[in-house]
Design a protein around this nucleic acid. Sequence first.
DNA 1: TGTACATCAGTGAACGCGCGTTCACTGATGTAC
DNA 2: TGTACATCAGTGAACGCGCGTTCACTGATGTAC
Lengths: 218, 218
Amino acid sequence: MAQTDTVTRILDTAEVLFAERGFAETSLRNITSKAKVNLAAVNYHFGSKKALIQAVFARYLDPFTERFHTALDELESEYGERPVPLEVLLECMARTVLEVPAERNSLKVFMRLLGLAYTQAQGHLRRFIQAHYGSVFTRFAELVRRATPDLPDAERFWRLHFMLGTVIFTLSGLDALRDIAEKDYGEHVSVRELIRRLRPVVVAGMNAPLPESARAAS
Amino acid sequence: MAQTDTVTRILDTAEVLFAERGFAETSLRNITSKAKVNLAAVNYHFGSKKALIQAVFARYLDPFTERFHTALDELESEYGERPVPLEVLLECMARTVLEVPAERNSLKVFMRLLGLAYTQAQGHLRRFIQAHYGSVFTRFAELVRRATPDLPDAERFWRLHFMLGTVIFTLSGLDALRDIAEKDYGEHVSVRELIRRLRPVVVAGMNAPLPESARAAS
DNA sequence: TGTACATCAGTGAACGCGCGTTCACTGATGTAC
DNA sequence: TGTACATCAGTGAACGCGCGTTCACTGATGTAC
């Protein structure tokens, strides 16, 4: 069995199981037995469970950041000095997000992982992501700033995270929500369909009127 | 040590630790040692760890649903046949959510738990919540339906969950986000402040224009 | 009022189990001379 | 071309550890007669 094979099988299996049940609830024995690989192989190739988790993320985020940088380059050269409209920025991000894991049907998996990274104890994961991939998000945030010049900085910060919450929650809880929706409306939604529904909501949320001033509020 | 004391100490400690680190990452030994209570006391009083988790939820949701039903009763008798406006419904929910855990500063804790319940493996938790507290949410959803008569049912369903995602993600990741916001803008936001910022975004999201038709989309 | 018994909160120690990790080892392949 | 050695992917078994749960037990309080 060639090295790449074992390593790939571990990563493929780990990402699915992590997304299904979380990090703590997925043991190396779960992964290696499902991947038909020796238990010790994880520690041999990755060093530790923690490093395996980070490797799972890297396998998504490396191609994502590369493509996203390229896509933003194109937008910037297309618009030059003019700010790129918010709708275009969001569209660009959505397209890149959808494009990257196209070969496997694993957008859900990745979003789930991202949600776990944010909410779970695993502080090391957020730090890992920030350290390795922070720059592309900073770049995106700066473009959003230029697209929404009337929004105070703090307000924009919070709204971006509100919208991030919407996307992560929806796509990571996708299976549960899909079940309910299907039962209630007999309608099976695809991820593309969901993103189509998300877009106007996100745009409207970002462009919402400012809240009444903090001073005036009780 | 009176019974109520031991039971309360366990619940108090468990809710904090669960919210900090998740369910799987919090052991009964963590809880009982921090609560200065015998290890076996959890199984004695609650029967199992799973039952303890549900008891932690029940301690919030029981008073919440009671108050929320009362508040909705008042709104319905105030508006009679007329639909209650969306803003009023959201305001009512926000007020109830803020009111309930007022004695402890534990809104964050509860939201975190709710987020975990949705995203984590713990299917038993979502089922528990649905079974015990589903009716009040159904009632709220029906009022929202009357407040947004132009929204197709499926669209409303998804938007409600988009907004739920925003709220849960924001309030459950509160500490992390607050750290970043404070570092970047030197501004410390309170939960009340955050909810003030959330309101216009949520209202705008619910009232966003309908997406282009699915047929027209690629 | 006194005694025998029941109830129940709480305890301390142990149970078996699954966990992540380690270690000595194998066997195939490549490299130096 | 042949031999000795190095490298490296992969293996099987064991390590110690912390986990949730169980069990026999204590001691205080309430109840029946």
